[in-house]
Simulated scan of single mutants.
Amino acid sequence: MSGLFEGKVALITGAARGQGRSHALRLADEGADIIAIDIASQIDSVQYAMATPEDLAQTAADVEARDRRIATYQTDVRDSDALKEAINAGVAELGRLDIVIANAGIVAFSANEPDPLAAFEDTIATNLAGVRHTVQAAAPHLIQQWNGGAIVLISSTQGLSGRGGNGSGAMDGYVAAKHGVVGLMRSYANWLAPYRIRVNSIHPTGVNTPMVANEAVMEFLNSSPSVGAALTNLMPVDMVEPADVSNAVVFLVSDNARYITGVTLPVDAGFLVK
C-alpha cells in the first residue's frame, strides 16, 4: 500500500538525530525519499554534545531500512553557499523536491555562560539565518517544478512567547530567532502562495531530544528556578516526544492540509495558554 508521500522527496535539516531524524523516518514511512542535512559537528558555544557523522549515517540506515532512498550531506546551515550546493546535489540525485522541513537548531543555554555574545550570534546564525538559507536554496526547485509543495519551519513556543527570558545571550538569541522564524514564515507564505506552495511553522514546547534532555540545559534550568518554572506546561508532562512533532509535520505537508498556509501550529501541551 502506498503512503501519503509516495514518489515525493523531502528535505530535512538537522536530520542526524532528535526531531530531524524523527521527521525523516516518519516521512519515509509514508513513502518519501529524503535529503538529509546536518552539521554533524560541534559549535563552540553549545555546551552539550551535538550530532556526529555516525548519527547522520544512522539516519540514513534507518531510512534505507524502510526501502526509501536518502542523500545525506554534512553541511552547516549557517553557510548559505555550502547549503545551496548540498540541496542542489540532493535534488539532482533524487530527481525532485516536494517538501522542506527547516528543522536545524541549537540551544546554547548554560548555567555559567562563558561568552554571551558568541551564544547569541551562533543561535541567530543557526536558528534564524539557517532557516532563511534553507528556504532560499530550496524554494527555486519547488517553483520550477510548478507542482506546488509544502514548507514547514520548526520554531518553538518561544517563537510565540517570551516566557523565561533572563537576559542571557543564549536565551535572547533563541527567543529572537524563533520569533524571527514566524516573520519568515509569513513572508514566505505570501511569496510562494501563487505557486501553490504552502508555508507554515510548528511551535513545540520542550521536546525529549538530546538538544533539550542534556546536562547543560538541566544545569541552566536548575540555576534559574524562575526560568524553569516559567517554562513548564499546562498539561502534566515535562516534554513532548519527537513523534508528536512529526505527526504535526505530516499533517501540514500532506494534502489533508492543502489549503492551510501561514499558520503557527503549537504542539505544546498547553504551554501557550498557561
Rank of each mutant, 00 (worst) to 15 (best):
A10S: 01
R17V: 13
H23M: 01
L27A: 00
E30K: 02
G31L: 10
A32N: 00
I34G: 04
A36E: 05
A40F: 03
S41P: 14
S41E: 12
S41H: 13
I43R: 03
S45Q: 02
S45A: 08
M50T: 04
E54D: 13
A57L: 10
A60Y: 11
A60E: 11
R66D: 07
D67F: 13
R68W: 06
D76M: 00
D76C: 02
D76Y: 01
R78M: 00
R78E: 02
K84D: 14
N88W: 14
I99Y: 01
A102W: 05
N112D: 15
P114K: 00
L128K: 06
A138V: 09
I143N: 06
I154S: 04
G162P: 08
N166W: 08
G167V: 00
V182K: 05
G183E: 03
Y188R: 03
W191H: 15
P204Q: 00
V207Q: 00
A213P: 10
E215H: 10
L221R: 07
S223E: 09
T232A: 08
D238I: 14
E241H: 11
E241R: 15
P242H: 02
D255V: 04
Y259K: 12
Y259Q: 13
V263N: 04
F271Y: 06
V273M: 14
K274A: 06
